[in-house]
Write a protein that binds this DNA or RNA. Structure first.
Lengths: 203, 203, 203, 203
DNA sequence: TATGAATGAGTGTTCATTCAT
DNA sequence: AATGAATGAACACTCATTCAT
């Protein structure tokens, strides 16, 4: 009814903020455009002036999700001295991240779908940045003789990331299944996992 | 129109085969009854003579998926002597399994969702059997002094499984994303992963 | 599997007995052929050897329902001396009947559907018999000077029946709505209704 | 294909009009959304922009049904002087109402079913209003000594309503069954019924 | 006669996307 | 740019009825 005028940037941030809330409250499974426009108090058609389709909007959210992940990794690495400790911190912070933004974790998994065929160059660039960051830590460790060199730093980086995701998903599904939060054993598992990884990459 | 008669066993296997294909081609997200009946060339109602609902059909597929996995694990462990080698073989065979039955991996994840509320006692029993099998290998290794004891065999089993799933999913999504099969580096990654895990759990 | 042989009469009574139970337990709304064959332990196709379709089966049940109603009316009238008292007893026994066979009441209403287009000659004949029975009571009352004559005995009979059905349905829906059985006021209502009718038809 | 634009008010009235026709022609048992959209020549999804679900649509029809009924009662009562005459007019106007809006009668019955779980506060309020209106007429008659006092005005109101519904349904089913309109005897029946009721409640 | 596997036209509901205004 | 009414393809599931054996 009321015709709101706003700069494109503002409007887009308004939409993404609403989308963020919807994702937070409903999860990716029940994320719908209708719920987003309800939140954002804008018309349905307006969304499509800013996003080609739903997936493009999710990619935008995904970008935010990766940003937060990168920031988590930076914080985690910051306090550590040795490269191995840094890797361990990264493993642990993957889980911390999931605890704080479980929906973002879901979203990142969701975006791996093979039929997610939109322009995600920004997303991929950021994804690369995260990889580079971890890669840098690993390569440094290899140079300093802390981390074994029979695998390329790339490979080690991928393995660390893949295992971290796997462990978090495992914990997630088990917690959902059991419907109670047995935080203790989860913490033990994360700790055991981190140590296993660091031991596995050490010289 | 044309009424095709068949033994219940044949018809059920026909449906499962069609469902397998649909899962393989479309992924769990786009797995629908309509697509299954299209493939199986049967009427809609027929499906419901064999399965109470969609989830029960998926549970049947899931059971098959776990059976194949267990069988893969058994084969893999069979040829190994030391416990650590057995664990390594399990890690590698997770990927082999994925190569043969890629569709089953996401199905297993899907069935973990908390609202999957059908009778899955058979499925869960088999799931437990797999866990027990791996657990047995790990516990044996601990007794023989091959595997470290600061983590319970349960915990190690879970971590191995979670990491294996993570690595396979990673490989899967990267391959689908890049749409070319760089089998070599994948093989390297699986090898590196297996060695990292075995090193991580060794004394 | 096992081929049961039986006389057609026995088989039909077996089906109708099962159907009766299904109607009793599920109500007309959830009355299905599947549930009947489950109960009767016979094959689906067999039903259609004895009944052209579902409605014909219901008509058979409906016949039974009317039989019980007629029997209720006979019992009710039996104890009364004056015609007016007989009419009052009929009004009351309509409700008694509903209390004992609520599903039969539903069924009778259901069979009034305009698209209930099957051969119901038996049903209609019995329906006529009930009408005749009431009509006889009314006509007798008119002859004896107990019941007013400005309306034909037919008309009075119809009105009595129609009002009785209406009152029972009203009580039924109110009880279902309120979900508690306030038997007292219901009894009062039935009593009030019966008296109102008898007063209405008296000279 | 062709996108027809209309004001919401028009579209809603268009849907209701179509629904009215479907109810009239098919009866509540065969009232489906598909038939409504067929009639209204709109897309399926459009219905759900105006009604949350089927029951809400029926509730809207039901509200309209009660409105017309109340209006009929008001008109009927308007011309009468004595309370007893007013009651008689109400009985007769029930039938008039049915003649004008035959489809609404079964709808009102249908909405009494206990699993009708939508917000019907408006409907129930209106229903109460009708009851109050009749109740007022009866209570007035009791005060003036025209109507007997051995039953509460509430009870009498309910009985009048229940009997009226019963008689209308009886006439309806008989007419449909015989498929010819013997308007004369129907009129006689309504007249007889009204007089029977008024006689029944008089002092 | 008996069987029960097979059929397929519904049934209500969802939701991403389009497009006339 | 903004609106929001309109669209229609999906979707899981039901059940009376048919018919080859």
């Amino acid at each position: 009814m009321v015709r709101k005028r706003a700069t494109p940037e503002f409007r887009k941030s308004q939409i993404i903020a609403a989308a963020d809330l919807v994702l937070l409250e409903m999860g990716i499974e029940h994320f719908t455009i209708d719920r987003v426009i309800d939140r954002a108090k804008i018309a349905k058609g307006t969304v499509y002036n800013y996003y080609k389709n739903k997936d493009e909007m999710l990619a935008d959210l995904g970008y935010k999700a990766l940003s937060m992940l990168l920031s988590h990794f930076h914080t985690a690495v910051g306090g550590q001295k040795s490269s191995v400790e840094k890797v361990k911190a990264i493993c642990k912070s993957s889980y911390d991240y999931y605890r704080v933004y479980p929906q973002y974790f879901e979203l990142i998994s969701y975006m791996e779908r093979p039929d997610f065929e939109i322009n995600m160059s920004n997303y991929l660039k950021l994804s690369q940045e995260i990889t580079n960051m971890v890669n840098h830590v690993v390569a440094e460790g290899q140079e300093k003789g802390e981390i074994k060199k029979d695998l390329s730093s790339d490979m080690i980086t991928y393995i660390i990331w893949a295992c971290s995701v796997g462990v978090v998903q495992f914990v997630e599904s088990k917690e959902k299944l059991l419907k109670n939060h047995h935080e203790i054993s989860t913490q033990q598992m994360i700790k055991g996992f981190s140590e296993m990884i660091t031991k596995g990459i050490s010289l």
